[in-house]
Design a protein around this nucleic acid. Structure first.
Lengths: 107, 107
DNA sequence: TTTTATTATCGTAATATTGCAATATTAAAA
DNA sequence: TTTTAATATTGCAATATTACGATAATAAAA
């Protein structure tokens, strides 16, 4: 199989899971941390900073963009990737919501 | 490949990613929500509640246990799965830490 | 002790993900 | 216009994940 049965879950569950999934790779965590630590926008310093091939980094960046956590601006030849702060905070709220709601009453 | 190069990332990055990864499946999100909504401990009501085979649910439960979010107690023939509130809150703090630190200065 | 109910594990098929080399694409620079 | 540099995309190969049937393991009930 290998296929996730998304249709049996509700939208909130699928959205949350999708978001967690994208963050569920150390390279993507590292990318977010690195981007946020720069004062200026970075581009493919990432390839050197993290030890993965350019194609691989590009793929990870794409996934982070897909859930809106990163936005990219073209600056001449280079790309400037930055954290989308609004989206970032929305997600943080959603997560806290999930964490606060999901607390046990039992045992 | 398909293999993640964990050795090139630091412990924090790998830990965070591992945690996100486990939460990155709608069935596991649903399990956590369902467990937390019960007043008593539940066992394999989950199999009926969520529409997946018993073997599959058991597997997902195992993964949630592996990062300490769920704990299981044997009650006769049944298993009582509960949220590990301490671990839950620790993780919530870690996540908020990550979210708060990772905010952009650029663009 | 045998049966029954509940949960875990094993084996396996189908699909997804990771990573990279090779190759586009794009836009500035020469 | 040609070259060069930066990034994206394509096409794999290797590995991981998801899901489930079959089967084992466990403990109460009969």
């Amino acid at each position: 199989m290998g296929i996730t049965k998304t249709q049996i879950f509700n939208e909130e569950q699928n959205d949350l899971a999708q978001f967690f999934k994208v963050l569920g790779h150390p390279a993507r965590v590292a990318i977010l941390q690195y981007v946020s630590n720069q004062n200026a926008c970075i581009c493919n310093d990432l390839v050197e900073e993290i030890g993965l091939a350019q194609a691989t980094i590009s793929q990870h960046l794409k996934e982070l963009k897909s859930i809106g956590l990163l936005k990219g601006e073209i600056e001449g030849k280079k790309m400037c990737y930055c954290i989308n702060v609004e989206r970032w905070e929305t997600l943080q709220n959603q997560l806290n919501n999930f964490f606060n709601k999901t607390k046990s009453n039992c045992c």
